[in-house]
């Protein structure tokens, strides 16, 4: 039983480290701010979850497990709120996303912001 727990914990920790590294590479590799947010979102949901589950499997007593569950819940509740606030603030300040040219233009009459954005198609960002 003990060996099974430690093997499971090792697998979870390794998977978590891999996902973490993937998120770190994504944040350097993706072309613009909005796509980078997706990379961060990977490393915040699944990598945090995997590493914390791996720690839960090898924790010495019950109270540690409860604290780890609470940290996981906090991260999962907080990360969408802060990333939404970040994206909304960037959009309101007029940061234009880089959109792919393969997608047909989207007709949008519901609000100005979105139609304003979609006119800016296929222009790669100058910084990369």
């Amino acid at each position: 039983m003990d060996t099974a727990l430690s093997i499971g914990s090792a697998i979870c920790l390794l998977l978590g480290s891999f996902l973490c590294l993937t998120g770190g590479i994504g944040i350097l590799r993706f072309p613009d701010f909005y796509t980078r947010m997706h990379a961060v979102s990977v490393s915040e949901t699944s990598a945090a979850g995997m590493i914390l589950i791996g720690l839960m499997l090898q924790s010495p007593d019950g109270i540690v497990v409860i604290k780890l569950v609470m940290i996981l819940l906090m991260v999962l509740f907080i990360s969408p709120a802060s990333s939404h606030a970040l994206a909304q603030s960037a959009m309101r300040h007029g940061l234009k996303p880089w959109l792919s040219t393969t997608v047909p233009a989207i007709k949008n009459k519901h609000n100005e912001t979105a139609s304003d954005i979609t006119s800016d198609k296929g222009v790669p960002p100058s910084n990369l």
Binding site: I27, S43, A47, A48, I51, I71, V75, A90, P125, N127
Partner: peptide
């Protein structure tokens, strides 16, 4: 390049600090 990239990086950094 933008302010928001920096805030995003700081946000990711803090989540990693928790872990």
């Amino acid at each position: 390049p933008t302010l928001y990239d920096r805030i995003l990086a700081v946000n990711m950094f803090s989540t990693k600090t928790v872990l």
